[in-house]
């Protein structure tokens, strides 16, 4: 293990060496990580794999892996793609919101005056709903 491990995840070398590396993997990424180890164990190279690793401060970092097996050893290199992931999530949310706004504004084209209050009410509810579910989505994407 090189010094980048200590720098990015915040653990000492000893802490990383004494535990199984699966102990650091995000629960939602365990299955895919086990599957990838299986691929490597059957002597196949893995050129692209992503999972989240627990840092010492309790947050997770997204790591993008490339790995090659030699017998029962795995040579692996990973880069920290957390910033990219967060930007990706933010961009996706922004797009979703733009889509919602265009749907809502289309409804107000040629609207009759007696429908106005009801449509405003409906639109505001949808916006509120959007932000509620976004908070949940973002939390599960990052955590």
């Amino acid at each position: 293990m090189n010094p980048a491990w200590e720098r990015i995840l915040g653990y000492t070398r000893e802490e990383l060496m004494t535990k199984r590396f699966l102990d650091f993997v995000h629960p939602d990424d365990l299955d895919s990580t086990r599957k990838t180890i299986g691929t490597l164990a059957s002597q196949h190279q893995v050129t692209f794999f992503e999972n989240r690793y627990l840092c010492r401060d309790g947050t997770y970092r997204w790591l993008q892996w490339s790995a090659a097996p030699t017998g029962n050893l795995i040579y692996a290199a990973a880069r920290n793609v957390t910033e990219h992931k967060l930007a990706e999530v933010a961009l996706g949310e922004r797009l979703r919101f733009e889509q919602l706004l265009s749907v809502l504004s289309a409804r107000f084209v040629n609207i009759s005056i007696d429908r106005m209050d009801a449509e405003i009410d409906r639109a505001l509810k949808q916006i509120l709903e959007f932000f509620k579910s976004r908070a949940m989505r973002v939390a599960s994407d990052i955590a």
């Binding site: 980048a4 060496m17 590396f21 790591l63 029962n72 692996a76 290199a77 990973a78």
Partner: peptide, 16 residues
């Protein structure tokens, strides 16, 4: 290296 480099075994442990 900016990348995290390691050698691990298929039992799930990092090697030195």
């Amino acid at each position: 290296s900016l990348d995290l480099l390691c050698i691990a075994n298929t039992d799930g442990y990092f090697c030195a």
